[in-house]
């Protein structure tokens, strides 16, 4: 039952990446993601792969940990592969399985997408694993604050995002707890007839909804009791500060993006 979901969880370690300004990390991540979607072939992926790998090393995250973040995507990737192998019939025939011809373009296309997904997950996991949810909120709010001029509720959105992030592990824990409680009452999610399965799922979802609503209510009350007012002017206890290394990260990543754009134009 120890299937702790890795995606989006903060890993408290002490590393240079953890200490970086969250705004720099988010900005760099966006530059990275944009680079990822500019198709310059495998060279681009190689460059980005090296960058993200260096990031994981510097953050002292275990590779096994990153690997666990990929696992849930495996099914999707296999599905994608089958779909591609079936649909794409261009290029030359690379090999054939059970008399089924697999074309080179299908293989390359699949590889492209898989690599892209892997790099994407890797980069986002790197940011979420090294940034405290609270810092993340502040950073998002800061980055969105220029939009306040046109009436965009940057603070509210940031607060909503941070609450959502904060409650992911709580809800996971809660669902595990309810699952165990119902397993004690004979619920078996793996076996059973169709109707039994429906009942089993209901027996998880209903209590989960009930407790989520209750938690939301409690949280709202607790925030109000402590005088939270979304429209009030707020000062911050923690101030973010961009240091040289932070600027270097942002500029460096944007240079990479620029380089990839140049490559794209040249090729």
């Amino acid at each position: 039952m120890n299937t702790a979901v890795v995606l989006g969880r903060y890993i408290p370690l002490d590393s240079p990446v953890h200490r970086m300004d969250p705004r720099a990390k988010i900005a760099a991540m966006f530059a990275f993601l944009i680079s990822l979607f500019i198709d310059v072939g495998f060279i681009g992926y190689a460059i980005l792969g090296v960058i993200v790998f260096a990031g994981v090393l510097a953050a002292k995250l275990k590779p096994s940990y990153i690997w666990r973040a990929f696992k849930p995507m495996m099914i999707m990737m296999v599905f994608l592969m089958i779909l591609n192998f079936y649909a794409i019939r261009t290029g030359y025939v690379m090999f054939s399985i059970f008399g089924w011809n697999i074309y080179s373009d299908a293989v390359f296309q699949t590889l492209y997408i898989v690599l892209r997904l892997l790099l994407m997950i890797n980069a986002t996991t790197l940011v979420t694993a090294t940034t405290k949810p609270m810092d993340m909120t502040i950073a998002i709010e800061d980055l969105l604050s220029p939009l306040k001029a046109v009436g965009f509720p940057a603070h509210d959105v940031a607060m909503m995002i941070s609450i959502a992030l904060r409650f992911i592990p709580t809800l996971l824990e809660e669902s595990q707890r309810i699952m165990k409680a119902q397993a004690s009452r004979g619920v078996d999610l793996e076996e059973g007839k169709f109707m039994e399965k429906i009942m089993a799922i209901l027996s998880l979802i209903v209590p989960l909804f009930v407790s989520s609503y209750q938690k939301a209510d409690d949280l709202a009350n607790a925030m109000e009791a402590r005088g939270y007012d979304p429209d009030a002017k707020r000062v911050r206890y923690r101030r973010l500060k961009m240091r040289l290394s932070d600027w270097m990260l942002v500029i460096g990543m944007n240079l990479v993006l620029a380089g990839i754009i140049v490559l794209k134009v040249v090729l």
């Binding site: 309810i178 165990k180 009452r185």
Partner: peptide, 23 residues
């Protein structure tokens, strides 16, 4: 469980209590 009240889910009390034996 500790705080078992969070595992109730059926429409009626009777159904909820009968859920275990039926399973």
């Amino acid at each position: 469980f500790q705080f078992p009240e969070y595992q109730l889910f059926e429409e009626t009390i009777l159904k909820d209590v009968a859920f275990g034996p039926k399973n």
